[in-house]
Simulated scan of single mutants.
Amino acid sequence: MNKTRLEAFSDGVFAIIITIMVLEIKVPHGANWSDLEPLFPVFLSYVISFIYVGIYWGNHHHLLHTVKNVSSGIIWANLHLLFWLSLLPVTTGWLGENHQAPNTIVAYSLNLMLCGAAYTILIAVIRSCTPFSPAMEAAIRANNRKSIISTIGYLVGIGLAYVSPLCSEIIIFLVATTWLVPDKHIERALHQQQE
């Protein structure tokens, strides 16, 4: 398969995920500002999920630039990632409708943790199919450290969900902020390979 086709398919799935999430925000029936108030938790969960999808889209874009040949393993690992990401509209909607309910926070955190695990698997499959330069290996190691920290954050968030839902939601948001700026390590390593 052509790498461009893999990128185009993935980009389409990312766009559909965002579209489905925004459709969960229902238009209020009234015209007063107070009619927007019940939408705030739904909107907030949408914003956080939008940030997460954007983070995955940006990092996925950089990661696919490392691919020389698309193997069936890469296709399936990519589909595995897209599967878990495609469930984000469901967990996002459930979290927004049941703001600060422990079960919804746990489901959302688990979904994010499984997205992270799938992304790590995709990196491993690409790494096994594509010989990386020393600079790219260092970039992947730095990326893996952030993944471990994120997983710990999600686990702590899950543990706190039944004790302090607000603290759990703050941890989920803080994990997102660690990934907010796209990882420049891979970008720099790609630039060095092209020189």
Score class of each variant (00 low, 15 high):
Met1Val: 14
Asn2Val: 06
Ser10Arg: 04
Ser10Tyr: 10
Ile17Ser: 01
Ile18Phe: 06
Ile18Leu: 12
Ile18Thr: 04
Met21Trp: 04
Ile25Gln: 01
Gly30Val: 05
Gly30Ile: 02
Asp35Thr: 11
Asp35Tyr: 07
Leu39Gly: 01
Phe40Gly: 09
Phe40Pro: 04
Pro41Lys: 06
Pro41Ala: 09
Val42Gln: 14
Val42His: 07
Phe43Pro: 05
Ser45Gly: 03
Ser45Glu: 01
Val47Thr: 10
Ile48Phe: 10
Ile48Gly: 10
Ile48Ser: 10
Ile51Leu: 14
Tyr52Cys: 03
Tyr52Val: 06
Val53Gln: 04
Trp57Phe: 08
Trp57Cys: 02
Leu63Val: 04
Leu63Ile: 09
Leu64Asn: 06
His65Val: 04
Thr66Ile: 10
Val67His: 11
Val67Tyr: 10
Asn69Asp: 14
Asn69Ser: 12
Val70Met: 03
Ile75Asp: 05
Leu79Tyr: 12
His80Ile: 07
His80Met: 14
Leu81Met: 15
Phe83Asp: 06
Leu87Thr: 11
Thr91Tyr: 01
Thr91Glu: 10
Leu95Val: 06
Leu95Glu: 05
Asn98Pro: 06
His99Leu: 14
Val106His: 00
Ser109Glu: 04
Leu112Asp: 01
Met113Leu: 15
Leu114Glu: 09
Ala117Leu: 15
Ala117Gln: 07
Ala117Lys: 05
Ala118Lys: 00
Tyr119Leu: 11
Ile121Phe: 13
Ile121Asp: 09
Ile123Trp: 07
Arg127Ser: 12
Cys129Asp: 15
Pro131Met: 06
Ala139Tyr: 02
Tyr154Lys: 00
Tyr154Asn: 08
Ile158Arg: 00
Gly159Pro: 00
Leu160Gln: 07
Leu160Cys: 08
Ser164Trp: 11
Pro165Phe: 13
Leu166Asn: 11
Leu166Gln: 13
Ser168Cys: 08
Ile171Phe: 08
Phe173Arg: 00
Leu174Tyr: 07
Val175Cys: 00
Trp179Ala: 09
Trp179Cys: 08
Pro182Ala: 08
Pro182Phe: 04
Pro182Cys: 05
Asp183Gly: 15
Lys184Tyr: 10
His185Ile: 00
Ile186Tyr: 03
Glu187Gly: 05
Leu190Asn: 13
Gln194Ala: 14
Glu195His: 15
Glu195Val: 12
